[in-house]
Design a protein around this nucleic acid. Sequence first.
DNA 1: AATGAATGAGCTTTCATTCAT
DNA 2: AATGAATGAAAGCTCATTCAT
Lengths: 209, 209, 209, 209
Amino acid sequence: MSIKNKTNEQKEMSFIGKARRAQIVECVIETITEVGYAQASLGQIAKRAKISKGVISYYFTNKEELLEQVVIDYYIACQSFIWPQIEAQTSPKGMLQTYIESNLKFIDENRKHVFAVIEIVSNERTDEGKLRFAAKHDDTIFLPIENILRLGMQEGVFREFFAMSSRVMALTIRHAIDGFSLELMRNPDLNVKDYTKELITIFERATQK
Amino acid sequence: MSIKNKTNEQKEMSFIGKARRAQIVECVIETITEVGYAQASLGQIAKRAKISKGVISYYFTNKEELLEQVVIDYYIACQSFIWPQIEAQTSPKGMLQTYIESNLKFIDENRKHVFAVIEIVSNERTDEGKLRFAAKHDDTIFLPIENILRLGMQEGVFREFFAMSSRVMALTIRHAIDGFSLELMRNPDLNVKDYTKELITIFERATQK
Amino acid sequence: MSIKNKTNEQKEMSFIGKARRAQIVECVIETITEVGYAQASLGQIAKRAKISKGVISYYFTNKEELLEQVVIDYYIACQSFIWPQIEAQTSPKGMLQTYIESNLKFIDENRKHVFAVIEIVSNERTDEGKLRFAAKHDDTIFLPIENILRLGMQEGVFREFFAMSSRVMALTIRHAIDGFSLELMRNPDLNVKDYTKELITIFERATQK
Amino acid sequence: MSIKNKTNEQKEMSFIGKARRAQIVECVIETITEVGYAQASLGQIAKRAKISKGVISYYFTNKEELLEQVVIDYYIACQSFIWPQIEAQTSPKGMLQTYIESNLKFIDENRKHVFAVIEIVSNERTDEGKLRFAAKHDDTIFLPIENILRLGMQEGVFREFFAMSSRVMALTIRHAIDGFSLELMRNPDLNVKDYTKELITIFERATQK
DNA sequence: AATGAATGAGCTTTCATTCAT
DNA sequence: AATGAATGAAAGCTCATTCAT
């Protein structure tokens, strides 16, 4: 019986099992980076992992679950890298700066993983044609930045955002960050320090009173 | 003989031929909008166009050419909508504002087409795994905005951008605009006016002295 | 109504109609020569003829009839070239020599047509998978040479062929001639004179007492 | 991962894998025999093998490689059958006789395989329209017989061949042998013994001083 | 725990043929 | 007389998934 056909209580996955899943996830990232989402077949992934396709099916229910794991791993790694840094900040301005800074740092240090996640999130769909990770992505990604902006407004350090404009600001920051990831793949020699500094400047000016 | 095996300029395409190509391009846009790039097969496209798959092959050499046509049509429509408005401006500040405004207006009025192009440009690859439209996209999309920024610096109305930061600014503006398109698909009832106003505010503040 | 849907009595084909058929047949030969039987589609043929595929269907019931016409034209041209020369001979030895000589001359002067016919005859099959032209080919091709051999035996100028060996001789002569055609396509600069001389020598020696 | 994406030498193919490939090759031969090269699609082959089309793609990179395997198998089997017999001969005359004899024997005992190879070699083309196996065929097939003829001339037991006529002789012998294969398919009850005897006589006479 | 084998659906593309004009 | 348009079947091939071992 394959590992996946067990009930939830049976979630007794061995150490080696976890390692295998991690290895496969790593190869998904590698593959998507090299050939893109649409060409990243299980065959291509298995080839890079130097295992048979069957192994993937053994450790993951289906391709969907495999890609989800890539996304989940990213969320965990990204959040646990960023949150402590933001929580260490006391001012909204510091939080915003840290949000941008830490995100770019994480992306720089996890280029392929982040790129793969963007590919997956913007392509993977349900049978009905809806983007599968859109909702979850929204929750995980936009809530924190919107909270920072709201806090800044309440404390009076950020300008007053009319109508839905705090959402626009949040989206724009997010698009800038995701866009940085794409640019980094196209142009790996990018000066990350300068890019970060400039992005902080842009959104400091955009938010200040 | 199919329509595509004529001379390269394809001068001699019948009226009905052009109409058919346009109709098929329209259905590609529709299909990508509904099911995404990866699921947009010729079969799906033909189904929506209520024609047989063979017809598509009759009017387009291959899928690649078909998708390229979607992108080309976008470039032509977008440029001819935006350029006159920008050229009518005299100040860099006015140009930047108009650039954002007209882009968002075009996107709003051509939601599906723009979305489809983003899907195609960010997914369609050559046999070697490189993004097929990356280079052309860069030329068409980034040069104008970078020119506006440079002009503003020379005239002293924009702040001094250090190092590569005018490129960062151009990229960030572009990511904000492309991001708007994606957001508009997820949330069709978006208040476009407010979104535009806010985006202009953000980048006015980000660029001013 | 297309020309082919008329009854036999209506075989009133115009001058221009005959010319068209001849032109198309010529292009079939050209196409098969260039790309081979399997790749010689109606589309390829029409392209070389600079006409639409529909025209071919207008003048020929189907592809089968078109290819048959190529073969028929060959038989007529070949026979009317060769027969008079053989009939002018009085001795079996002279006939055999003339048979080889005139065949090779005809092939040399109609390289592409002969090659196309060989391609068609050895590939074109009925729905049941039988070679369509095998029987007709046999009758037209082998009877004359077998007759020459029989005559030579009766007159005592050829050696006695035991058992089925006059058929073997006829076949071998025929294979040598068809093979010459193939070799001529592979190696167009072949010295035809020398080839002819040698082939005559071979079969003179093989048949003589 | 399919069996074919291993190293180039494909050292590590399982026993069952080899058997499957052999089985599929056998069905290609069967299929070409029944319906000819042009109609021998992967679907037809799979049907005869009672497997799905996918299995063929699993064991062979593409159709081209599959057909090449048929040809390679033939070369190996044919050479290893014929060579020892020829090398056992001491005189050129004996060699020539053995060459014809053993070739015809091999064809008789491998009728379908030989026929299939002839179909493939004379039809399979590259994308540029050139016969794919023409060159290799030439090397493998004509060199040995030309060597025998040259040896016979040097030793003075064969007549002097002027100009390119030893090549003509080699070609004619080869055409006779290939032609025998075709004749055998059309007429399975052929008396092979008599055919062989006659062919030997023909070329003995054709070559002798 | 892991694999090789196999499937069947779906992909893009080509093709002979039909038909309205 | 001729064409452009369209079809539907079949081609070679890829893929996610299943399953026996």
